[in-house]
Nucleic acid binder design. Structure first.
Lengths: 332, 332
DNA sequence: CTGAAAGCGCTTACAG
DNA sequence: CTGAAAGCGCTTACAG
């Protein structure tokens, strides 16, 4: 009953204190001033639970990512949290570790906590886990889940643009024989990237040779192994594209260990543009996934939903090539 | 009044529903079962605000870091969040961007949200910003703020151990002329690291020469510039230690650009053991700051405080050397 | 084992 | 411009 303390000290009713707290303009300036002083003197902070209970609003968003240790996410989280802070919204944060079961419990926790919106920025998805959400009328936005975009807000990633750009770059440098380090096709995003690569290859009439596509585990090690596989193969490609930067870096290590100089003897291109890709020698040419934009679209979608504004046209995000030092003309 | 819905459907009072919800054992199994069914059928989720208001507990912790994009933090956040989830505690998350003013508003937001504990894992600190916290009886734990450890719980980092170990390693390899890339002494952690380096140098009777200590901005660029400075100087050290990995990587770049091979012509050692340090070629020898342990100590301290357990002996964390490929014997 | 009722701290129509 | 009072959804002594 803390607001009562303030009220007594300022010799007004709790209603008046509440009005001051909420910036109502139907309080006489002098009264308002008295209340303000009492608040300051008492170092009063209002109880958010009572307020939320009364108002039926929590000003809380939930943010779920796969794995905060994956350097893809921090910037996204950073941007999301920043925008929320500006709107007076707090965010509770959780990660699934790429585990669908954990996804469910993450969602449940958020629902129980009474969030008004959830951004599920994970690559793994489980439609059943989402069932509990719409029931409660909680706004939801997903990352790159085209299959679900009729039911939930979605931020789509248009991979093909990025691959086309990268392949054009390589082609203009003179490359034709281009390998690909894919991710496990059980990861929907890895699967989608591989498809986009193939489409782009065909569109540019570049040959897709058997043995030129090797699968890695999405981590540095996997990239190194994949590169070893490529090098062990018969005719060696003059350029290699990797599904993500971590594997591109692994591939770089393997190539260097095998005495192959990058880019003089082979060009290498990653995908994501993680901060690391700029710290490695040679700095990695890569396709940048615009993380900041993803965060912005996701947050805006939630904000609009919560405000009851009509749903915006589906948000999409376009990867772009960042040319650095790991690509160059093929050896003669 | 949603619990009433459940009560009606199960033909009991709200008190009974509440008891079932809270696992009270004074409910007849049959009744309990009926209530459970009603809850499931109605897809009921209890209102956390009403509950918290009544109980006076929020089961919410706050976590403040400097900058989530700094690779030092994600693992810490990850571990903290994981332990919280296990205890049924949610965490609201915020970052200061190394800005003391933002620190204040971060703390304020957390206090207003009613967190039961705050972990302030930032290098910058502002004692005044903390004033508002203890007033409310909110448990607080800081990272490496020895000056404040009588008033707040603190996780101390014992830098000297790490530097001694690294310097011994270099010394045993045959190095005597060792340079240091320091951080701005306005950063308390950079200042502390520099002091520890000096102490360790003296302890091992290694010479500290003028011009061998260069200051960088803690980022990759700063490290590169610092290394250029060192190379421009007269007598070149055979080994260089950097205050953090990012600057060590910058130094590596600068050395490579200058045609200096690492470690053959110069040894390089970082500090932090960021994931990047293992991805760079050559892989970086570095002093590992145990992020997971920091998170554990911080969380435990908060948990104990909230549970009213008596304060544990001050927690400390010891950096350890990780030897990789960037250090070796000095050139003849 | 179960229910009626008070109360957690706030906000807001309603009345003046 | 201000106050008295109801009510947000829960939990828990109290009484039975």
């Amino acid at each position: 009953m803390d607001i009562l303390h303030v009220a007594k000290r300022a010799r007004v009713s709790t209603a008046t204190v509440s009005r001051v707290l909420n910036g109502s303009n139907l309080v006489r300036p002098a009264t308002s001033e008295r209340v303000r002083r009492a608040i300051a003197e008492l170092n009063y902070v209002r109880n958010p639970n009572a307020r939320s209970l009364r108002l039926g609003r929590t000003h809380l968003f939930g943010l779920i990512v796969s794995d905060i240790k994956n350097p893809f996410f921090p910037e996204l989280i950073d941007a999301f949290e920043g925008m929320a802070a500006e709107q007076g919204i707090d965010v509770i944060f959780t990660h699934t570790n790429y585990d669908t079961v954990r996804l469910r419990s993450c969602i449940r926790r958020m629902v129980e906590r009474g969030v008004e919106g959830i951004a599920i920025m994970t690559s793994e998805m489980d439609e059943e886990a989402l069932q509990q959400v719409p029931t409660r009328g909680i706004a939801t936005v997903l990352l790159n889940q085209p299959a679900l975009q009729d039911k939930y807000r979605n931020v789509a990633v248009e991979y093909s643009e990025g691959f086309l750009e990268a392949l054009r770059h390589l082609q203009s440098l003179g490359h034709r024989e281009i390998g690909f380090i894919a991710g496990p096709s059980t990861f929907s995003s890895a699967f989608r990237r591989r498809q986009s690569w193939e489409t782009a290859m065909k569109q540019l009439r570049l040959p897709i040779r058997p043995g030129r596509v090797v699968v890695g585990d999405m981590r540095v090690e996997g990239g190194a192994n994949a590169m070893k596989g490529i090098l062990a193969g018969g005719s060696r490609p003059t350029a290699v594209l990797a599904t993500n930067d971590l594997m591109a870096i692994g591939a770089l290590h393997a190539a260097v260990s095998a005495g192959i100089r990058i880019p003089r003897e082979m060009s290498l291109c990653g995908f994501d543009d993680l901060p690391v890709s700029n710290m490695v020698v040679p700095q990695l040419t890569t396709i940048q996934l615009p993380r900041y934009e993803i965060a912005t679209h996701a947050f805006e979608a939630l904000l609009q939903a919560v405000r009851g504004e009509k749903q915006p046209p589906r948000a999409a995000v376009y990867p772009r090539l960042v040319i650095r030092k790991s690509t160059g003309p093929p050896p003669k």
